[in-house]
Design a protein around this nucleic acid. Structure first.
Lengths: 163, 163
DNA sequence: CGCCAAATTTTGTACTATACAAATATCTAC
DNA sequence: GTAGATATTTGTATAGTACAAAATTTGGCG
């Protein structure tokens, strides 16, 4: 292994993060289902972005979601069909399209978010407070450590045949 | 909030776990791409299960991956096409189909896994050792706390209008 | 002014993942 | 040996995804 970290530690961290993440995804899915709306997880992500950052240009929205613009268009089609978002041409520049939550859309996000937060809170509440503090700092450090693009030393990279 | 846990703690934990998990998914995707094979993440999951538990019945495989059997069939179709798995009828019970890695399939898994482990190791290596230990124990505790099915107190549940 | 290049979005096409229902094939027990 | 149970595949439909091409709009330049 590349830097004095035993392989088992790598696998333990990987497993632990992925398990925790699966749990959160399951909680989110449950929360959406509980609200009874027929919205997929990617669609919900779009709604959350709109709730958090306000109305957005279609292309900007695609970038925020890290999908191709045409993907965003089609996702938006479905959400418009469900009455959860509106699409209006920007009067200043009619080639741009502004996407915004409708009232039902905002409601949905609030509803689902409240349920999700409540459920996660009930999990977090069961954690020993010391562990709880560790969790956040350790995960942040982990994410920060991985943030630097191409997170491998050049020695490792060449050893593995990377460019 | 349900149990004396400030909302911000909930959001911090949620954010931290999801960010870390996104990082890992990105690492995995990079590792697969680096090997140059045109395999999707779900397909790779199937290969990993086969590598870890040996040849499996089609239905068993679907359960392990938590997808519908027909989904597994189609995923397997593509992997057979790519020469990464084999499908043989169980001689003992010809209605059953056994799916197994081919040599190229096993190779692919080993290759990708090695790259992924190396990259994650280089991230983990940057962590303060104390944080590293905290990370695993805290995440495990979190996942365990969430494992209990329907992780909400009945008081919370009724307060939220759950059944 | 008018046209052409750049920007923005949508449409056409193709493919994967996914589920449900129905068809198919096999096995087993009576 | 036939009926019911079991295992898989096929038919059909939908969502997410990308790339390429078309459509629309804007803006600048001769």
């Amino acid at each position: 292994m590349s830097a004095g970290v035993p392989g088992s530690a790598v696998d333990e961290v990987t497993d632990a993060v992925l398990t925790a993440s699966r749990l959160l995804v399951a909680v989110s899915a449950r929360s959406i289902a509980a609200v009874g709306e027929d919205v997929t997880l990617p669609q919900f992500r779009m709604l959350v972005v709109l709730a958090g950052r306000g109305p957005q240009r279609a292309g900007e929205l695609a970038e925020l979601l890290d999908v191709h613009p045409s993907t965003a268009t089609r996702m938006a089609d479905r959400l418009v069909g469900a009455g959860l978002i509106d699409r209006v041409a920007n009067p200043q520049s009619r080639r741009e399209v502004i996407v915004a939550l409708t009232e039902p859309g905002r409601h949905l996000v609030e509803d689902v978010t409240a349920r999700r937060r409540a459920e996660i809170a009930s999990i977090v509440a069961r954690l020993d407070p010391q562990l709880r503090a560790n969790l956040v700092s350790a995960l942040r450090a982990f994410a920060d450590a991985g943030d630097e693009p191409m997170a491998v030393s050049s020695r490792d990279a060449s050893a593995l045949g990377w460019t």
